[in-house]
Design a protein around this nucleic acid. Structure first.
Length: 490
RNA sequence: GGGCCGUUAGCUCAGCUGGUAGAGCAGGGGACUUUUAAUCCCAAGGUCGCAGGUUCGAUCCCUGCACGGCCCA
């Protein structure tokens, strides 16, 4: 075994040999459990007040991964890490049975330990190893103990190694989970029910995006992975469920960027007999609860300021976007500002571009932008005061859009006309239109109550709450290009 | 999609206008029974991302490709 580049293979072979030796001694290499163990955090809570240099007189069991070792001849200290924290172990030739085999343990090994809790002279809470058991062997070398795994690509491709070595990665993963739990709780308290609607759809809709396509052999037809939950959830509102939400993955077959992932997590809720003003209050409540649960330092205390899109752009950019419907006026202004307007084919797109350029990117603390032009919003209800405006809002924070919502269009005839507009836009070359959905229109014809619908992009929200600049930092297994085979067989 | 940058030991990083590479940690051997980035001694570890080109000679210069990062769209 002396091929070049096989440091890691040599380590693996050495460790496999240790396993084989242990097996020949009759050791159960992969035992089925380790009962009655105490999480490290609980142990710390219970014994944290112990005076330095004193024993607790109490034995207990801890289990986790060996992350550091400091040897001292016939004694050694190890750091044991579980999901709740890190604790020092002290093994000695006198007190630890099988001390020699204990010394064969490698960094990364998972072990269970039983022994007395004591406070070292230097005040480090520790467990004396009075009995121990290998729970699973680590056959691969861990990254460097001080820097951990810092290579961004390796952290994403081998997230388990990132989580093993970088406590912050574990903290962030748990924070995301806590935030999601808190959002569910907030909605449940308001009488919402969580539902599940199709991921595989014969028609996609509810957003402006290109879908992934797949195929059902049994149904003998192509299906789409949903780009949004919207149209199914509104069918449930027609059916009388009144308050529904769904929290799961949507898929968009588009470019990947620091804030775009092809699969991403959406929370959508629909509230009957409510309008977009009610939606803003609930967004404030749900997001502030999520922020508290995630330990965010942002001030998300309601109420958040509200500005109309027209006011916000006029103030930030110095041009009134809604003075008329003239694309040329906006585009020439934007070009004077040095902006690339090659993607702004319509007046509405230019307005959207102004919003993201001058408003979205500058928002640090939470802000609602309200009252959007109808052209940007095929499923929103028109304002009773202005035919050209819809009752829609977006919430921005930390330079990011975190929520999009509106009073839902529930007039089936007008909804049909909006679909027709989308069809015309598609015929004109717009690749991100929403296709005619006859079954959805049929549902609306049975009557949908006035409803507010809200969508929250969970990944972007987590970026804001955890202060991450790349969506891959808040997705445990982000989309990456596949490497050529032969990345070392390692 | 465009521009810039990166890819060297398992990990974190050095490597001078081109002469086939160094350190720390991890791993191996040894000393050490309250250390905590423990310490000390010894030895070992490389297809310098991949493929071409220039050159007497390429980790280094050039081209292409792969993957990633940042910025722009």
């Amino acid at each position: 075994m002396s091929e070049p580049g096989d440091t890691e293979q040599q380590i693996r072979q050495d460790r496999l040999a240790k396993l084989a030796a242990a097996r020949s001694r009759g050791v159960d290499l992969y035992p089925t459990g380790f009962p009655h163990r105490v999480p490290v955090a609980v142990l710390r809570e219970r014994f944290g007040g112990l005076e330095p240099g004193t024993d607790s007189g109490q034995r207990l069991r801890v289990a986790g991964r060996v992350m550091a070792r400091r040897g001292h001849g016939k004694a050694q200290f190890l750091d044991l890490v579980d999901a709740s924290g890190r604790i020092q172990l002290h093994a000695t030739a006198d007190a630890t049975p099988g001390y020699e085999e204990f010394g064969d343990l490698d960094l990364g090994d998972l072990i269970g330990v039983e022994g007395e809790v004591f406070q070292s002279r230097r005040g480090e809470l520790s467990v004396r190893v009075e009995s121990w058991q290998l729970l699973a062997k680590c056959l691969r070398p861990l990254p460097e103990k001080w820097h951990g795994l810092t290579d961004v690509e390796q952290r994403y491709r081998h997230r388990y190694v990132d989580l093993i070595t970088n406590e912050q990665s574990r903290v962030d993963a748990i924070a995301r989970s806590r935030a999601i739990t808190a959002m569910r709780a907030a909605l449940d308290e308001e009488g919402f029910v969580e539902v599940e609607t199709p991921v595989l759809q014969p028609l996609y809709g509810g957003g402006a995006a290109k879908p992934f396509t797949t195929h059902s052999n049994e149904l003998e037809r192509d299906l789409y992975l949903r780009i949004a939950d919207e149209l199914y959830l509104k069918r449930l509102i027609v059916g009388g469920l009144d308050r529904v939400y769904e929290l799961s993955k949507d898929f968009r077959n588009e470019s990947i960027s620091f804030k775009h992932s092809p699969e991403f997590t959406m929370l959508e809720w629909y509230q009957a007999y409510a309008d977009y003003r009610d939606g803003m209050e609930l967004v404030e409540k749900v997001v502030s609860r999520a922020g508290a649960a995630a330990g965010s330092t942002l001030d998300l205390t309601p109420p958040w300021p509200r500005r109309s899109l027209r006011e916000a752009i006029t103030e930030a950019a110095g041009i009134d976007p809604l003075a008329d419907r003239d694309r040329e006026r906006l585009v020439s202004f934007m070009q004077e500002q040095g902006m690339d307007t090659s993607g702004d084919h319509t007046w509405a797109q230019a307005v959207d571009h102004l919003l993201s350029h001058f408003v979205e990117s500058r928002v640090t603390t939470p802000l609602f932008i309200t009252d959007y032009p109808v052209e940007l919003s095929p499923f929103s209800k028109r304002s009773p005061d202005d035919d050209a405006i819809v009752e829609r809002f977006e919430a921005f924070c930390g330079g990011m859009e975190i929520a999009n919502a509106y009073s839902e269009l529930n007039d089936p005839l007008e909804q049909r006309e909006r679909f027709e507009q989308q069809r015309r836009a598609a015929a004109a070359g717009d690749e991100e239109t929403t296709p005619m959905d006859e079954d959805f229109l049929l549902a609306l014809e049975y009557g949908m109550p006035p409803t507010c619908g809200v969508g929250i992009g969970i990944d972007r929200l987590m970026m804001v709450l955890l202060d991450k600049r790349n969506i891959r930092e808040v997705i445990l297994f982000p989309a990456l290009r596949v490497l050529e085979p032969d990345d070392g067989g390692a």
